[in-house]
């Protein structure tokens, strides 16, 4: 908390020093703009539009990544088959994907697809790595004691995967917001946060730009905390 107050003070001091709101809006100006935005219906419509799409893209990437990693861990052939796709998705610049998706699907669901593409390889590769790191000796123990797949999942795989999934998710959650909003900035679907950032740029409205950026950071943090908490509860539930 003290660090946040310190950062705000530094920001305010810098804004006063520059003394040009077009270059650097002060925290007070940004807060004022934020409060006026919150009171409008279009603000909530915009927040809802982008959040829904980015969260959908993240969840799609998460579940597809975990599912395919589990299958690839079980079937070596599938891992080899998926390898070129995963490497390609990981290496291609987001901008190239954005343009391709714009041509293929249009802008409305662009951020769903882009978030998915950013999240999927991170989750898939980390889950697969976690599965490969499973202690063979524990699996031998499970074999000797005739443990069912459900029990192996509870006692061996879930505890093993937990740290890998946590670290993958904390990376992927941030990525999904950054890439999703960047995609919206290029594709400019109506009522999207990316479009709002674009409009702020066109009107050279720094306070607006900062206000929307603060909203994106807060939403990203809120979703990250909420998702990691749910995941922790989920793991606890499975391991109970």
């Amino acid at each position: 908390m003290a660090a946040v107050v310190f950062a705000l003070l530094v920001w305010q001091a810098a804004a006063m020093l520059v003394n040009e709101s077009l270059l650097l809006a002060s925290p007070v100006q940004v807060a004022g703009r934020l409060f006026s935005l919150i009171g409008t219906e279009s603000f909530w419509q915009t927040v809802g539009f982008t959040t829904l799409r980015i969260v959908s893209g993240f969840l799609l990437g998460f579940f597809t990544g975990v599912l395919l990693a589990v299958l690839a861990g079980r079937f070596k052939g599938l891992e080899m088959l998926l390898h070129p796709f995963v490497v390609t998705i990981k290496s291609i610049p987001v901008a190239s994907f954005v343009i391709l998706v714009l041509i293929w699907l249009g802008s409305r669901h662009l951020s769903v697809f882009i978030s998915f593409l950013m999240v999927f390889p991170v989750i898939y590769l980390n889950t697969l790595q976690g599965l490969k790191a499973t202690d063979v000796k524990m699996l031998e123990m499970a074999k000797m004691y005739h443990l069912s797949f459900a029990k192996k999942l509870k006692y061996i795989y879930v505890p093993q995967l937990q740290p890998f999934l946590y670290s993958a998710c904390s990376i992927a959650l941030g990525l999904s917001w950054k890439s999703g909003v960047a995609a919206e900035l290029i594709g400019r679907p109506d009522f999207s946060m990316g479009d709002m950032l674009y409009m702020a740029k066109v009107h050279m409205d720094t306070a607006d730009l900062f206000a929307w950026t603060v909203v994106i950071i807060l939403l990203s943090q809120l979703f990250e905390k909420l998702f990691l908490l749910l995941m922790k509860k989920g793991f606890e539930g499975v391991m109970k």
Partner: peptide, 20 residues
């Protein structure tokens, strides 16, 4: 089997390791 190493599920209780 009692293996040379214990091969316990470290995140679970002693009872849960036996009960499993």
């Amino acid at each position: 089997v009692v293996f040379q190493e214990n091969r316990l599920c470290e995140q679970f209780t002693a009872l849960e390791n036996v009960r499993m």
